[in-house]
């Protein structure tokens, strides 16, 4: 175990901004990509369903 306390963990030996700045941006970007790509698939699926109903009419 490397850390005596929660505070030490977040301080990262004085490199907190650099370490957490890296991890935070990575996590936010990956989450954003997942949300956007899932929304793209869902919207396309919805549009194709609307389109096919319109075609049947």
């Amino acid at each position: 175990m490397n850390w005596g306390s929660i505070g030490e963990f977040f301080a990262m030996g004085g490199y907190g901004w650099y370490v957490w700045g890296s991890y935070a941006v990575t996590i936010v970007l990956i989450a954003a990509e997942l949300v956007l790509v899932a929304a793209r698939h869902r919207n396309t699926l919805r549009l194709t369903k609307n389109g096919s109903q319109a075609n049947r009419r």
Binding site: M1, N2, W3, M12, G13, G14, Y15, Y18, S22, Y23
Partner: peptide, 15 residues
Amino acid sequence: FVAPTDFQQGESYRI
């Protein structure tokens, strides 16, 4: 939690 602190770079290497 398992990997130790780097003796040259300190904790910054965890990036």
